[in-house]
Design a protein around this nucleic acid. Structure first.
Lengths: 223, 223
DNA sequence: TGATGGAGTGAATTGTAATTCATTTCTTCG
DNA sequence: CGAAGAAATGAATTACAATTCACTCCATCA
């Protein structure tokens, strides 16, 4: 028994793992999935390609962990807002507009994690966090319905799904590399983002607020 | 000059092209993108792989045309609804619920075309039609605002994007191979679909209907 | 110090489909 | 019929990254 792992080595291993994750995250947030190749990550982390595989079993698991780390923080932020003692409508508005504003802080990363085409396996990991966000929103809606401040004629889970889809889609244009024209460090940009966030949040709130819309849809001949 | 294309041959060529498109569409609607391989399409159309390339320059263009054909019909249906003389809110409700119901007629195909992970190039073609749908919805919203039946405090293009994202997301669960458990030919299924369509459409309508929601969002300390 | 075994390396391998193209088969018409 | 050109074929090629692994390098400790 001439070798046993010592604390120093253990620390280095842990550090390597972190460096890989950081490099992976940086590459995605700079160039999207196109840049997120295992070989590039390894190079960016200052090690050989094979080394990455000593820390992660596959590319998919590596990036799932990147996604997980970023997304979990957002879920936590939303959960904290949801847990506050404000009215349901206020919590919903704040949750949505906060999500939008935070996403716009790092648009390229948010775009990649939310919308950019990527490998199937990574895409599946997205679902998990979209579901987690949806669940937070659902709880807010359900509590608002119980308290009587929100309409009761919509299923909370469906409403939450629609709201999440809505604000994500509303974000995609502004987030996407094509939709962003302005430098991010200007006052005008900040104001635009705040306006966008408020408008999207208001749409979300309106969809579940009382009173219900008074619509009498007409019947179409099915075609 | 011993050969010139005759009408008979021209007809066969056109027929081949159609067969390729039909086969491609059938494969996607049966097995999703996983089954949508050029070789499989060729086999399903009863010809050799290389032949497909005499009609389409690439896989992406082939499937973009499949997507285009299916989507354009939906855009047309929505446009017809949008052009009717009903109130804006009624047109919006009918447009959304009609889209949902039509999608649920062929869930596997709709799922593939709307949400299933696929090649980047095909994914880009999706954007075109999502934008076209969004534009139809935007026009309805704008006309409703002009007529005074819809709130004026939301930008029509943003509202349209959010609504489209919302109803697409609301559809994904029910459309996806995992979310569908029931046979499609039962009375119960039809009723469920109708309910889903109505609920989603109602959410969409509520998000832009008058009066605006009365929300006073609280301020969070940025974290 | 040198024997032991884990850690790191990166060129080579693998897997997966799209795409090509030399060859064969079919159509046309003198 | 048979020459000429178009269309079809499908096995071979290409492209591209993920993944592997035989080897080298380093840390540990008797």
């Amino acid at each position: 028994m001439a070798y046993r792992q010592t604390a120093l080595v253990e620390a280095r291993l842990h550090d390597n793992r972190s460096r890989i994750l950081a490099a992976a995250r940086r590459l995605v947030s700079e160039g999207g999935w196109k840049e997120a190749q295992v070989a590039s990550v390894a190079a960016a982390a200052g090690m050989a390609t094979g080394t990455v595989y000593r820390y992660f079993p596959s590319k998919a698991e590596l990036f799932a962990e990147v996604l997980s780390a970023v997304s979990q923080r957002e879920v936590d932020v939303l959960a904290a807002i949801a847990a506050s003692s404000e009215g349901a409508l206020e919590r919903l508005h704040t949750a949505v507009s906060t999500f939008v504003q935070r996403a716009m802080r790092n648009p390229r990363l948010a775009y990649a994690l939310i919308a950019e085409p990527c490998d199937k396996e990574i895409d599946e990991a997205r679902l998990t966090y979209r579901a987690a966000i949806s669940e937070v929103i659902r709880a807010v809606i359900a509590s608002g319905q119980a308290a009587g401040s929100l309409r009761k004629d919509v299923a909370p889970d469906l409403a939450a799904t629609v709201i999440v889809g809505g604000f994500m889609e509303g974000l995609i244009g502004p987030l996407s590399p094509l939709g962003r024209r302005q430098r991010q460090d200007t006052e005008g940009y900040r104001r635009e983002v705040a306006t966008l966030a408020d408008e999207i949040a208001t749409l979300a709130c309106a969809s579940v607020a009382s009173p219900p819309p008074n619509v009498r849809p007409f019947i179409r001949r099915p075609s």
